[in-house]
């Protein structure tokens, strides 16, 4: 399978997981990249699903900011209110993992109800 096809397959899995987790009674939040500036690692529309225990599937940045998004998602699950987060990914951590992209991303985090 191509990289592109893998990414698409992964998107399928993420959205399906969000549905399945919620139907199984778990608290679920969905994070979606809604804007990017510069060469961000994941395109607009990429998503990450998080449950109330902090388990997650998918990616919004290729690994740089997932930890922070998961933490915010737990807040969103608690409050039920959507939140928009902004991250610059040109920091030291990004360099360390090989993402010298210098981009910025905006992420919408919402609860699945």
């Amino acid at each position: 399978m191509t990289t592109e096809a893998n990414l698409l397959a992964r998107d399928d899995e993420i959205l399906k997981a969000a549905e399945d987790w919620r139907k199984a009674g778990r608290d679920v939040a969905l994070a979606t990249v809604i804007e990017t500036w510069g060469s961000a690692p994941r395109p607009v529309g990429s998503s990450l699903v998080i449950d109330g225990e902090g388990n997650f599937l998918g990616s919004v940045s290729g690994g740089c900011v997932e930890g922070a998004v998961v933490t915010e998602a737990l807040d969103v699950i608690e409050s039920g209110k959507p939140k928009t987060l902004e991250f610059g990914v040109a920091d030291e951590t990004a360099w360390k993992v090989g993402l010298s992209c210098g981009g910025t991303i905006r992420v919408l985090v919402e609860k699945v109800e």
């Binding site: 399928d12 959205l15 399906k16 969000a18 549905e19 919620r22 139907k23 969905l30 809604i34 928009t84 919408l108 919402e110 609860k111 699945v112 109800e113």
Partner: peptide
């Protein structure tokens, strides 16, 4: 996102039909 929207979205994707989710940011 409402579960009903998510379920419908997954059904459309599985059927290879195009679909758009419109989210009002405000």
């Amino acid at each position: 996102m409402k579960l009903a929207i998510l379920s419908a979205l997954n059904a459309e994707r599985a059927a290879r039909r195009p679909v758009v989710v419109v989210t009002n940011i405000e």
